[in-house]
Every structure is written in structure tokens, then in C-alpha cells.
Write a protein that binds this DNA or RNA. Structure first.
Lengths: 318, 318
DNA sequence: ACGTGTGCCGCTCATATGAGCGGGTCCCTG
DNA sequence: CAGGGACCCGCTCATATGAGCGGCACACGT
């Protein structure tokens, strides 16, 4: 693997050839010609140069996206998209900002006029839309009700409206909470004209950005907003993650329960039908939730930060 | 030249492909297959990755030889050999030691059983032979007389004898000074049997290691050993370098003069007939001398240190 | 001296690759 | 709305390249 070549002249020759080939981009035949060697000899020297470590190839770029980690994450988990932002930041708000920017850039890039965009309510999604500056003209569909929290200004509606305005496309939005006290209320809400209209568009959504929470206190806005009993019940059913209102267990299997009926949001089946579903998780506490979400196949795009990406890869390799 | 790609997804895709291609060594066709792209698209992305600087290729190795500089020196001046030792050392003795080692390794590598080795007297050559540990069995021919200096132990004779013993081949050596007071003495010396014998072997020498001095006080052992008048006369003739007794001007043209006749050493014509002539110059004061020596075509191999190598390249590029 | 193993070389032939072309699309601009 | 112009794509076809083979020289043990 690493047996550096023989004499110094050999070494210099190999380096010259490597330079001609890799830096100057000449063909091996040309090089062979120039150095009066057979092209085979040139090829062998180049092989040796690479395997001995004389030629090192690095992939990097000036931005804050860790391309190598992104690629590995994408490949390892079979994702359609993966963006890993390389930042030492660990303050959640600042992190959200950075990931939001990366996600916004991603969305700008991948959304084309043929798409229908779905947006769920989540702080990370808000962070994204806030930094969105350009978007193809597409319909924007609200995928979930909103939760009002003292520390958050925007709600799901504003998020959708803002994005649709930016895009120039129609908005399908409604005013409703993400979770209500009982199934009956939920059913009634779902029959409201605006809600029903939005829901009727769920199956034409082609790209969506969703929230992703770990099913534990402080790790999921939905968890924190729900009553203790319901949370406990879902935990007993093996729920480890909520994907904008869709509950999944550690194996990524969606969990149906009475609680599910109280949620005003896209369901597992509908989400599964969406071509690309992107989540923006951060924080090491979410490792298991992300694994579950990815395993479920519901989420096939990730925008995250390097520590979480590394943790995911580590967890995968054991 | 450096317009980094478009969106982040594009970037990650390009990085993935670059990794597959450069790191994993897969073919473009395989990659195209894997990513569902045309091989042309893959090729274009890879081109872009290289030209945008996303993929960086470096050539380096753990030793103290600067391969890149060596290669550039070799190419720029059309040399057969160039070894640039990367060292911050500037103490002449320590430098000689390092260059001597590099030159010794080089000699071990390039001298084969078919060669005839010629050695001139010079401190740097002594530094080389002292560190020579292995050499093909070849005849070793003394190319110059010796100068005895208080700070030097070995002389040309010892140098040749030692090398021949190491090699196992015959030695053609003689006892004579490098320079004598008048041409008549020189002529007489050249007819001495041992001297004549060595000289008769000059034209079969295939590889030689010579000294290289700048024609100024303290920059050439020969200069320092000669009378003021002679030095001055040669300087007036435009001499800037002495190559083990061969004087050349700034354009690399050998300078004949009455002084030349007083030197017991190989002459320009004979040196020119040698396939490889290697010098081991060091110190920035020798830039012009090295340029002249290389331009003359008499010297076609260099073992030197990085500052001098850089200075040579700089001088060439202006 | 004589196998014999090892390393290096250059070959053939199937495959990968590059240069350059022409046909699209989108976006200006007149 | 027509006419460029600036891409971006995938094609053809000549060329470059890789896999694997047999020949050759050298080193070594018997």
C-alpha cells in the first residue's frame, strides 16, 4: 500500500510524469512519447505514484459544506440529497440559521417549475424559508397545522404564504393547530374548506420540507405540546421520532394510534408518496430519530451539521 | 478558471462522483451507470471539479527531496537529472553533507555495469563519495588533479580510490595538482604514465560528477588557489564559472586561455562527450555560475538545495 | 551448471475516453 | 414575435487506456 519508490531519480521521474498527467492533463501516450517510455511504463509509474501516496488527491471547497461527509451520508443511507454543514456551532438557534441557509440554497436549486412544494411547520423549516431568496414558480402546500409557541414568531401559515409569494405560485394554506384534544375535533377541522383543499393537494406534492423530532421532552415541538398521557402512550408503542406529525418506531415503521387521529397533518401514506422529503435535523440527541426517519423511507433528504452526520455514520458502522 | 459550481446538491453530486473516480478509481462509465447519468455528463462534472479547484491534486513525499521543484528544474533547463533537497540548512558543511547523501543515492541508482564513472576533485564530490555505500562494478577515472587545502582531508586520489574499491572496478588515478605555475610543467605532467593513462580514459567516461564554482573569491576552490593575475585575466575574458577546471562565460561558452593550459584536468570537449555530467552546487552566490554551466550543456545533472533551485527558476522566468 | 521464482517489460484486444458536432432550451434583445 | 447567443445535452468516431499474457533477465538454492 505504501512502499515509496526506489532511487531519487526514479522518484523525480515519477513526480514529473505525475505532474504532466494530473496537473497538466496530458495523456499517457503523450507523456510516454515525451519521456521515451512505453505507455505501459508510464501507466505503471502512475499507478505506483498513487498507491505509494506520492500523489494525493483531496476533495474540498471554500464553503462551509463538508462535501465528503455529505457524499458519504448520502451514499450510506441511500438518500436522494444530503448536505452536511461543517460548523463547530452548537447553539441551536445559530445552528438553525446556518442549516436554514443551506436548506434554502438546496431548495432553490432542486425545485423546478414542474414541482409542487409541501411545507410542514417546524422551526428549522421557518429558518429555511426566512432565508429563501429565489424559488421557481410552484404551488406551495401547507402540510401540517401550526403550533404557537412563545419563542416563535412565524407559524405554518405565514411560512407557506411567504414562500408562495416569493415563488409567485398559489398557496394552499389553512388555519388550524397541529394537534387538537380529540379525534372528533380533528375530523371536523379536516372538513373545513381550506383544510380540505390543502389536504386534497397532498398527493400532488413532489417535494417537501418537514420537521423531525426525537420523541422526548425538548426534542420535539409536538411532544412538548402534547399531554403527558398521549406522549407516554406513543412511547410505549415504540415511537422514537415524529416527522411533522407522522410517528415512526426505531425500525422506521409508522405507528398508528388514537393519538394520530388528533393530529392535523399529512399522514404516513401520503408522505411516502412524495418524491423528495427533506428534513433539517440537528443536535446529537436526534441520532436515533434520524435513523428511524431515514429507515422509514419517508425522509430521503437531510440537511444537517457535521457532528450529527458523523454520529449517524458511526452508528451505521457498528 | 475558478468558478465554483452552482447549487449545493450539484456540489455534493460532483464531490461524490469525484470521490468515486479519483479515490475509488472507478471508470466514468461505471459512475455514469451508478448515478444514472451519461458518461459525458460525468466527464463534464469531473472536468468542472478539477478546473474549479474542488479536486486538488498534490505531489509530495515523506523524504527531504522536493520532487516538484526537482521536476520543474529538470524540465525548465532540459536536464537529464535534477535532485532538489528541501532543507533550510545554510551552513555550507552541513549542506554539503545533505547534498552529498542525495548525490550518493542518485549515483547508486543511475550507475550501471555498462558505465564508466569519472570523478573530479571538489569538496561536494568528496561529500558524496564519503556517503556512497553501494555502486555497480565500473571503472573509475580521475578527471582532475587535486588541490590540497588545510580544511580538506581527502584529495582527488583518495576519492577515486575509495570509490573504485567500493565499486569493485579498476581505478585510473594519478598524483598531480589541479593547477601548476606554467604550461610547460602541465605538459610534462600530462605525459606522466599514470596521468596519460587516466586521460586516455576520458573519452570512454559515460557518467561524471564534477565540481562547480562561481568565478569569484571564496566561490571556487580553483579561483582561491590561483594567482591574482590569472584570475583577473579569466574574469576579463568573461569567465563566470569553473566546472572542475573548465572555464565558461555567462553564455556557457568555454573560454580558452593561457591559463587553461596550466590546468591538469579534463577539457571542455572531452567533458562535452560525456553522457551525464552531474554537479552539486549550493549557495545563492552560485546562481549565475550554475546558469552558465547548464547553458554550456557541459553539465546536465544537478543536485542542489531548494533556495538555489528556486533562484535558478526565478532567474529563468524573467 | 541448472532449474525456478520473481520482477519487469511490451504486446494484443476489448473497453473507456476525448474532441468536436448538431440539436435542443431558455433568455435576451431588437 | 423573430432572431440571435449562451448554454447543456448526447451522439459519432478516432484515440487512449486497462486487463491480462508471455517473454526475458536476473538472483538464488541445489
Amino acid at each position: 500500500m505504501e512502499p515509496i519508490a526506489g532511487g531519487p531519480a526514479q522518484l523525480v521521474l515519477t513526480a514529473s510524469i505525475a505532474r504532466r498527467y494530473y496537473v497538466d492533463g496530458r495523456s499517457k501516450v503523450e507523456i510516454a512519447d515525451e519521456f521515451r517510455l512505453s505507455r505501459f511504463k508510464v501507466a505503471r509509474l502512475l499507478d505506483q505514484a498513487r498507491s505509494s501516496g506520492l500523489v494525493r488527491i483531496e476533495i474540498s471547497h471554500p464553503g462551509n459544506v463538508d462535501l465528503d461527509l455529505s457524499a458519504r451520508l448520502q451514499e450510506t443511507f441511500g438518500l436522494r440529497r444530503a448536505i452536511v454543514v461543517d460548523t463547530p456551532e452548537d447553539d441551536p438557534a445559530a445552528l438553525r440559521l446556518q442549516l436554514g441557509k443551506a436548506a434554502a440554497d438546496l431548495l432553490t436549486e432542486i425545485v423546478t417549475a414542474d414541482d409542487v412544494l409541501g411545507l410542514a411547520w417546524a422551526r428549522a423549516v421557518t429558518a429555511m424559508t426566512d432565508q429563501l431568496t429565489s424559488l421557481a414558480t410552484v404551488p406551495v402546500v401547507q402540510l401540517t397545522g401550526a403550533l404557537t409557541r412563545p419563542d416563535v414568531e412565524a407559524n405554518s401559515v405565514e411560512l407557506v404564504r411567504h414562500t408562495a409569494r416569493l415563488s409567485g405560485g398559489p398557496a394552499y394554506l389553512f388555519y388550524a393547530p397541529l394537534v387538537v384534544p380529540d379525534a372528533t375535533t380533528a375530523r371536523a377541522l379536516r372538513q373545513q374548506p381550506e383544510v380540505a383543499d390543502a389536504i386534497s393537494h397532498f398527493d400532488v406534492v413532489t417535494k417537501a420540507v418537514v420537521g423531525l423530532g426525537s420523541w422526548a421532552a425538548g426534542q420535539s415541538t409536538l411532544y412538548d405540546a402534547m399531554d403527558e398521557t398521549a406522549c407516554e402512550q406513543l412511547r410505549k408503542r415504540g415511537v422514537v421520532a415524529d416527522i411533522s406529525g407522522v410517528f415512526v418506531d426505531a425500525n422506521g415503521v409508522p405507528v398508528q394510534s388514537k393519538v394520530t387521529d388528533r393530529v392535523i397533518a399529512i399522514n404516513a401514506e401520503q408522505m411516502n408518496a412524495i418524491d423528495e422529503v427533506i428534513a433539517i435535523p440537528y443536535g446529537l440527541a436526534k441520532v436515533d430519530a434520524v435513523r428511524a426517519a431515514v429507515r422509514s423511507g419517508l425522509v430521503n433528504g437531510l440537511v444537517t451539521h457535521s457532528p450529527l452526520a458523523r454520529a449517524l455514520l458511526d452508528a451505521h458502522n457498528e
